[in-house]
């Protein structure tokens, strides 16, 4: 594959331009996908960190968990018979800090479980983001509607719901504030078998996330951008190699006439595509990791190496397909026409 390499050396500018474009497009893709992932944590870290399982809400809630009320009988029945199952409620609300500044929180309460923080009445555990805003362990928070007070017991990482920091409170306090003893949801971890309960509708974690209105909208638009960028990069490859091949039709014809195999010409193109893409991807993986570590704290950005590698594979495959599609010209080139044409 010396020819492929020689051509790249001789036509550095062309290939560097292609490489830079692929670098920029893939870097953008990585960053947007990091943003999508970060936003999804920021939106629903509470749910995303749970083990795979199923959520249940009442059927007449019509997929809106805050309209769901599971009666005590059903709840007790399920909690008794299903291992590790837990009943929980989530409600958006406010607490006031020591300076009487109002903070939005998502109150979460649950029956006894390892999956959710447990606190005694009068206590509260908060998402770490509120610590960054100046609330400390030992502070007392007040709640306007119920005149109750909460003693801050501690902070937990990455627990958000609908972009709002989670505040774990006891079931007693929850009943006090919202005047109901019914829980909204039941969660059963484990995916082996989906249990059916009359009157209840089951949701996988993923399906449950989609019932959060902002969640689907955010993820869909960002993922669409990611796929658009991937398709664009595929087309870039196709167009670039198409142009290159058009310029080289005469050369291909001559090479075929003197006995070069068509497959050799394809390999030459593939080598170039793989080399360019690999270099561009390596640089943009490095770039995206630097961005990952430099991104400001408040920016919801989270990009794992696995995601980058997966996307890189997609880029390579798409590049291969793009180059190959444009390479069908090579196949069609007749040695004869090329010879009868003039100098390239």
């Amino acid at each position: 594959m010396k020819m492929a390499w020689k051509e790249m050396q001789k036509n550095k500018a062309k290939f560097i331009i292609l490489g830079s474009i692929i670098f920029l497009v893939s870097l953008l893709t990585f960053i947007i996908s990091g943003l999508a992932n970060g936003l999804s944590h920021d939106n629903a870290g509470l749910i995303k960190d749970l083990p795979d399982g199923h959520f249940y809400m009442t059927e007449d809630a019509e997929e809106m968990y805050n309209l769901s009320t599971i009666n005590n009988g059903t709840q007790e029945d399920i909690l008794m018979n299903q291992e590790n199952s837990v009943a929980l409620s989530i409600q958006m609300g406010f607490v006031n800090d020591q300076f009487d500044k109002q903070r939005s929180v998502a109150f979460v309460t649950s029956t006894d479980s390892d999956l959710f923080e447990q606190v005694s009445s009068g206590e509260i555990i908060l998402d770490r983001s509120l610590e960054d805003e100046g609330i400390k362990v030992g502070d007392t928070l007040t709640h306007n509607q119920s005149n109750g007070t909460f003693l801050v017991k501690g902070f937990v990482n990455q627990k958000k719901y609908s972009h709002t920091p989670v505040a774990y409170i006891s079931t007693e306090d929850y009943q006090d504030i919202y005047q109901t003893s019914d829980m909204q949801l039941i969660f059963i971890p484990g995916t082996e078998n989906v249990q059916q309960f009359t009157g209840l509708q089951a949701f996988t974690n993923q399906e449950f996330l989609k019932t959060i209105p902002s969640y689907s909208a955010e993820q869909m638009s960002l993922n669409m951008i990611v796929w658009f960028l991937i398709v664009i990069s595929g087309m870039l490859f196709a167009i670039f190699f198409y142009m290159m091949n058009v310029q080289k039709i005469g050369l291909y014809g001559i090479l075929k006439a003197i006995g070069v195999k068509t497959s050799t010409l394809f390999q030459m193109m593939w080598t170039q595509m793989v080399v360019i893409t690999s270099i561009a991807l390596t640089v943009s993986i490095a770039g995206s990791q630097i961005f990952n570590s430099l991104a400001p704290n408040g920016m919801p950005f989270s990009l794992t190496i696995e995601t980058t590698l997966q996307l890189s594979c997609v880029f390579l495959i798409i590049g291969f397909v793009g180059a190959t599609l444009s390479g069908f010209q090579i196949k069609k080139v007749e040695a004869l026409q090329a010879i009868q044409q003039g100098e390239m």
């Binding site: 020689k6 050369l251 006439a257 090329a338």
Partner: peptide
Amino acid sequence: FGFVFQFAHLVPFL
């Protein structure tokens, strides 16, 4: 076989 044509048709980058 060997081939010579009206134009040399050399490989431009070699």
